[in-house]
């Protein structure tokens, strides 16, 4: 796995959705991008957890940065919180993509696997969003 490429983090309320999305990325894009996923609240129910998001960011960390794909509201809020809790030098190299989680993750990872910058990776994922 190349640590030169932008990493992808998938954050869903459901661990099944997060894992399934990661499976699709792996199968469609391969192993060229650092990839991590997390889903579920601290008790294993539906929800998201800052603690597990922090862990996923660490796992997918790359010098080129990390793009995060989220599903619903709390996933975004918790991801923003996790970014703020990162060391300062990391914060500007993490981006939350405003994109549908499955399609966005696949598109972002495809772009990242070609060595694109974090900005380009995010833009590519966000092309999927209306408006």
């Amino acid at each position: 796995m190349s640590k030169e490429n932008v990493g992808i983090v998938i954050v869903s309320h459901s661990s099944d959705v997060a894992r399934g999305t990661a499976d699709m990325v792996r199968q469609m894009v391969g192993d060229e991008v650092p990839l991590a996923w997390c889903g579920g609240d601290p008790d294993g129910g539906l929800g998201t957890s800052v603690e597990t998001i922090l862990g996923a960011i660490d796992q997918a960390w790359s010098q080129a940065g990390v793009a995060i794909l989220v599903d619903l509201g709390g996933a975004e809020t918790n991801s923003e919180m996790a970014i703020e809790m990162q060391p300062e030098e990391r914060r500007s190299r993490i981006a939350i993509c405003n994109a549908p989680i499955v399609e966005g993750a696949v598109m972002a990872a495809t772009e990242a696997s070609g060595g694109a910058s974090l900005d380009i990776v995010r833009q590519t994922a966000e092309e999927l969003s209306p408006g």
Binding site: D41, P42, G47, V50, M81
Partner: peptide, 15 residues
């Protein structure tokens, strides 16, 4: 609250 709540209310009340 940020670390344990698990929904959007964790970061909101935590903040």
């Amino acid at each position: 609250l940020v670390m344990k709540v698990g929904g959007a209310s964790g970061p909101l009340y935590g903040t």
